[in-house]
């Protein structure tokens, strides 16, 4: 029972982190380099999950992902399964919920790159994507690592949104935080202790990693 929840949370965090990095790399690069007037709007949109309570996200997702709604209905026709009460729905929710934790470290890292680097690479004949991959990305690796680790850890601790759209289904949507909540309500404090201590220790380790990276040989 406990390990189902742990394994599920780890899977959810891993899938979310991969998707978020794929989406956030171009988005953060654009944000770091653009002079577009819309930039503040996009930045604000990305940062919204930092300030909104999970219940707001959960409420809208419950409506959007319902089989009655266009998004939920489309997914149902496509896969034969609903988005709510399913792993796929949790991935959608987690990607929105953890977006700022991926975008912001990347944007900071990209913005901090020496400005001549990309031009130099271009002068030497590198195509833009090639220059991004072989110059910008390695230089910003600290940001990439921070973005990945924070997205993973933040998703691991996700609770409110999952409670609203998840449905508490073992092996599918009953993640660690929901398992802890249920354990406390049913007075299974042993289970609650094991899982809570596990999250506490792993979260602490993750943060030590993130802060440690800032002043170690990883430093660019």
């Amino acid at each position: 029972m406990i390990w189902d929840a742990v394994w599920l949370s780890l899977r959810l965090s891993a899938v979310t982190t991969v998707i978020l990095l794929a989406v956030s790399l171009p988005l953060a690069w654009w944000l770091a380099n653009t002079r577009n007037r819309l930039k503040p709007l996009i930045e604000a949109l990305t940062a919204l999950p930092l300030v909104l309570p999970p219940t707001v996200l959960g409420f809208y997702l419950l409506l959007l992902m319902s089989p009655d709604a266009p998004l939920g209905g489309f997914w149902l026709r496509l896969t034969g399964d609903t988005l709510t009460f399913n792993f796929a729905g949790l991935v959608v929710a987690s990607c929105l919920y953890s977006l700022p934790f991926a975008v912001q470290p990347l944007q900071t890292a990209f913005a901090g790159l020496p400005s001549g680097m990309m031009q130099a690479a271009a002068t030497l004949g590198a195509a833009p994507f090639d220059a991004f991959r072989s110059v910008a990305l390695p230089l910003a690796r600290r940001g990439v690592l921070t973005a990945g680790v924070l997205s993973f850890a933040h998703t691991l601790g996700e609770f409110g949104v999952v409670l609203m759209v998840g449905g508490n289904i073992p092996g599918s949507t009953r993640v660690i935080s929901v398992e802890i909540y249920s354990a406390v309500e049913t007075l299974e404090y042993r289970t609650a202790h094991i899982l809570s201590a596990g999250l506490l220790v792993s979260s602490f380790a993750v943060l030590v990693l993130v802060y440690g990276v800032g002043r170690s040989r990883w430093r660019v």
């Binding site: 419950l62 992902m65 319902s66 009655d68 609903t82 449905g167 508490n168």
Partner: peptide, 19 residues
């Protein structure tokens, strides 16, 4: 396929939103 709600109020929410 049981969908287990945290309490019976959440059952009403899922029914009313078509989930």
């Amino acid at each position: 396929q049981p969908l287990l709600a945290e309490n019976v109020g959440q059952v009403a929410v899922w029914l009313s939103t078509g989930n």
